[in-house]
Simulated scan of single mutants.
Amino acid sequence: MPGYLTTHVLDTAQGCPAAGIDITLFRLDGDARTKIATARTNADGRTDTPILPQDDFATGRYELVFHCGDYLRAQGQSDDPLFLDDVPIRFGMAEGAHCHVPLLLSPFGYSTYRGS
């Protein structure tokens, strides 16, 4: 089965999906970092399509960067600088299957896991 990558963002402080967050996907190859795709979360906190669709999928090392600063400011965070602004998550995909990498976000912390 061909692989693909999806993601979403949940605001754990507000208890809801995080809409309007820009996401950038990079492929990592040694020290090289190549931009592959960009997307924005919708009202459900998800991208409208897989951020890495089947036609572009390849196993390897990747980085998702969640640009959370504007979202957190809109939620009332006024610290300058913010504790969290850009949140990078580096991960590997070793098999051609669906990989889901969500971000659970709050103003002062985040977590992720390999979802389904």
Rank of each mutant, 00 (worst) to 15 (best):
Q54C: 12
E95K: 11
T49V: 04
L64W: 00
M1F: 12
A58V: 00
T38A: 05
P17Y: 08
F83C: 14
P102A: 02
T47R: 02
T6A: 06
A94W: 03
D29H: 01
F57T: 12
L103Y: 04
K35M: 15
L10D: 09
L64C: 00
P102I: 05
R33V: 13
D11W: 06
T7Y: 10
I23K: 10
F57A: 11
R33L: 13
P88M: 05
S116M: 11
L82T: 02
G60C: 01
G69I: 10
C99P: 07
L5H: 03
G60W: 04
Y113L: 06
G96K: 14
I36L: 14
V87N: 09
R73Q: 07
A18R: 06
Y113F: 05
V101H: 02
A74V: 05
A58K: 03
L25N: 01
F83E: 12
T6P: 03
T7N: 09
C16T: 14
P88Q: 03
L28Y: 05
G30F: 04
Y62F: 03
K35L: 15
D55W: 09
G109T: 10
A18S: 04
A39P: 04
D86G: 00
L82P: 01
L25D: 00
I51W: 01
Y62N: 05
L103W: 04
Q77C: 05
S106Q: 02
E63T: 08
R61E: 11
